[in-house]
Design a protein around this nucleic acid. Structure first.
Lengths: 214, 214
DNA sequence: GTCTATAGTCTGATAGAC
DNA sequence: GTCTATCAGACTATAGAC
């Protein structure tokens, strides 16, 4: 769901005016970058979205690059925090399957609800200057480690056939989830319903469960 | 400098010098746009990749926008043609499952082999100016119709459980395939092996086939 | 068909007033 | 903290030589 206020330690609640403004800038930047790409988004667009002039951005960020890096930082940070929180919030005996399901649902929700920042982060990775990209990829890898563990556990529990390459499985799931940023439109299906279908086809296959289970 | 029009349906073999150069420009543009985004790729980069100066591009294309649109045209065109060809080439009694499998394999091959043009097309859609995007989305929808039919046939044949939304299924498959453009690196696994895993997890589920079948 | 040169535009970033 | 004003640099697109 939304941010479980507890596990949100990484993203402090905006309190000082400076923090509020900074947050507004990042929100505006996420939207602008997502829609126009890294080079296509003008600082004046970003500033306008935050209700200020372009020059004023430099009080909060040293440069365009510093801004985009702060944005991408927050993107992975928020997503990983939400996924970990969702897993931690599962009732006591959570199977590998339960944890994987929770991760899939939560990641998708972050993509389509916190639409701009999560999906902007993903798209920006291949557009930003190389040094920024390197660091961003490093953070993405750290998040990927969480998924590697989830999938390894699921395989050990017999939920994943042993002949599949787990990297391919992982990237396919991420692709299916991240792709939703490009086609999801509020109104038709709820994010929860979409997540349910992706979970079903991922965990049980297109044909459906073979035996009885949840 | 637009295409002469008529029988350009299937990427004619470059014959005249003009065609060869045009092809080189499109190849270079695909790589540049894929790596830097629509606004980030400079015409001088594209020209350099084609072995010429920036100003010379204008003999072949009227503008930056005309160039990117020609590129995106070719991207979907090539992919759809390849998928249709693969399906048509299947041995006589091709089941819905066989056709779907062929489509998945071929689409992935187009993404990771013809790497630049297919994946550039996908990424560019949300970065180009709106009129170009509208037309590109129209062409994508036409290609999507092919997949809708494949999936509808598969469901009618009992290969897909009836409680899944076919749009979600379709977009999840496309996401898993298109995502490979971002992580595939030649050398580790062959594209064929990756395709095989994606086909397996898509058609049979992560847990594996329930009963005996191919 | 391609080159060189340049006109014209846009934008990231800085400086100083308030 | 934000604004206005501005500069320096980069880029698209054009024009004319070859």
């Amino acid at each position: 769901m939304k941010q479980p206020s507890s596990a949100r330690a990484a993203t402090p609640e905006p309190q000082r005016k400076s923090d509020i403004t900074r947050q507004a800038i990042l929100d505006s930047a996420a939207r602008a970058f997502r829609l126009s790409g890294y080079s296509g988004a003008r600082l004046s667009d970003i500033a306008a979205g935050a209700g200020m002039q372009a020059g004023s951005l430099y009080y909060h960020f040293d440069s365009r690059e510093a801004l985009v890096e702060a944005l991408m930082d927050r993107g992975v940070e928020q997503t990983e925090a939400a996924v970990r929180a969702a897993i931690a919030a599962l009732p006591a005996p959570a199977s590998a399957r339960d944890r994987l399901r929770a991760a899939i649902e939560t990641h998708l929700l972050m993509i389509v609800q916190q639409e701009d920042i999560a999906s902007a982060t993903i798209k920006l990775i291949w557009q930003v200057p190389q040094p920024i990209r390197e660091r961003a990829l490093g953070r993405q890898r750290a998040y990927g480690a969480l998924w590697r563990k989830l999938l390894a556990d699921a395989r050990d529990a017999g939920e994943i056939r042993s002949d599949l390459d787990l990297s391919v499985v992982r990237m396919s799931i991420m692709g299916a989830l991240n792709w939703a940023a490009d086609w999801y439109k509020p109104g038709k299906m709820t994010p929860e319903a979409i997540a349910a279908d992706i979970v079903a086809m991922t965990l049980e296959g297109l044909r459906g469960p073979c035996k009885g289970e949840g």
